[in-house]
């Protein structure tokens, strides 16, 4: 959290218990005003708090209760309370480990490639040229697409019934999305393209924070293009890069739409990423207990990534000051 005068300032003496001095005639109306202010504050916070309570905190906590309930093998039987046993069963299962590895692999493909392509586009667009704004708009254009749109476009292009890729000599057997070795990379291609716009926008805003005079100074010192990039731009860009890696990884762990539209977790569970696994456990296996364990695992991973990022951002703030 950012240090902030509002939250950390020492309370006005009139607010402290010892500040209630009776000899001040304005004391009473003043505290009534404070009461009114607090009332207004709670009124303003209420709508958001209500939604958070019902749709974030309650379902989040409910996961822990659901996770102890084992769905009976045959419908009609009562659910069994198995305590923490289900955690071990689910998290130790081959399916979960496969799903976790698939998600990590997916992040390892999409995050670095997306980042490098976004950075490359940002570097190319980071120059003073007539009409550069048009190219910037084009490079950020994929933010206007959704993951569902990207999945439909790439999935249909990879459909062997469509002539374009076979004409280019790209016609793997079995076809991309049914091919155990190619399905995940194929889904990754759609994902990388869709996130390219966002990656470009992030990297561009990072590049704008690199001072021009520093680059000019390096040039005067005889630094070449690569040396300028390696020794000036990249170090100054590292917070943005770090941020993009963490956020990209969090996004990767929420991958769902492209899997649902393209592969449904197959072939042979090669694309069964964690969020899709939660969904299919809930929807197809109708096992909320097991799904809850998986959801808790997803939460823990996201939390660790977020904390990692917050720690780093905090340090960055200190550097800046």
């Amino acid at each position: 959290m950012t240090p902030d005068g509002d939250l950390t300032k020492v309370a006005d003496p009139a607010d402290t218990p010892f500040g209630i001095v009776v000899d001040k005639p304005q004391e009473f109306p003043r505290s009534r005003r404070k009461l009114k202010e607090a009332g207004l504050a709670y009124f303003l916070l209420l709508p958001a708090l209500l939604i958070f309570a019902v749709f974030i905190f309650y379902p989040f906590l409910k996961n822990f209760q659901l996770a102890t309930q084992q769905v009976p093998p045959f419908p009609g039987l009562p659910t069994k309370n198995v305590g923490l046993d289900q955690f071990g069963d689910v998290l130790g299962s081959k399916d979960f480990l496969n799903s976790l590895w698939t998600t990590v692999l997916f992040a390892l493909i999409t995050v670095p490639i997306g980042l490098i392509l976004g950075l490359a586009l940002a570097m190319v667009a980071h120059q003073k040229l007539k009409g550069i704004a048009i190219f910037r708009t084009i490079f950020s254009s994929t933010v206007a697409t959704s993951i569902a749109v990207a999945a439909v476009i790439f999935g249909t292009l990879m459909n062997p019934q469509v002539g374009l890729l076979p004409w280019l000599g790209i016609n793997p057997q079995p076809p991309f999305l049914e091919n155990p070795g190619l399905a995940l990379p194929a889904v990754a291609v759609a994902t990388i393209w869709q996130s390219l716009g966002l990656s470009f926008i992030l990297m561009s805003s990072g590049l704008q924070s690199v001072p021009d005079d520093l680059l000019e100074a390096a040039e005067v010192d005889g630094a070449g293009a690569w040396s300028k990039f390696r020794n000036v731009t990249l170090p100054l860009l590292s917070p943005t890069v770090f941020f993009a890696i963490v956020v990209g990884t969090i996004f990767a762990f929420q991958t769902f739409g492209q899997i649902d539209l393209l592969t449904q977790g197959g072939p042979i569970k090669k694309t069964n990423v964690l969020t899709y696994y939660i969904y299919s456990t809930l929807r197809e296996s109708r096992d909320p207990g097991k799904a809850a364990v998986l959801a808790i695992a997803l939460f823990v991973i996201t939390m660790l990534l977020t904390l990692f990022q917050l720690r780093f951002l905090e340090r960055r703030v200190h550097y800046a000051r």
Binding site: A48, F52, P59, F60, K62, N63, L282, A295, T302, T306
Partner: peptide, 17 residues
């Protein structure tokens, strides 16, 4: 409390929601 909501991806809450 408001900041804490940022740590819970919506995907985590779908079961009860």
């Amino acid at each position: 409390v408001f900041l804490a909501t940022l740590m819970v991806p919506f995907e985590v809450t779908i079961i009860q929601n």
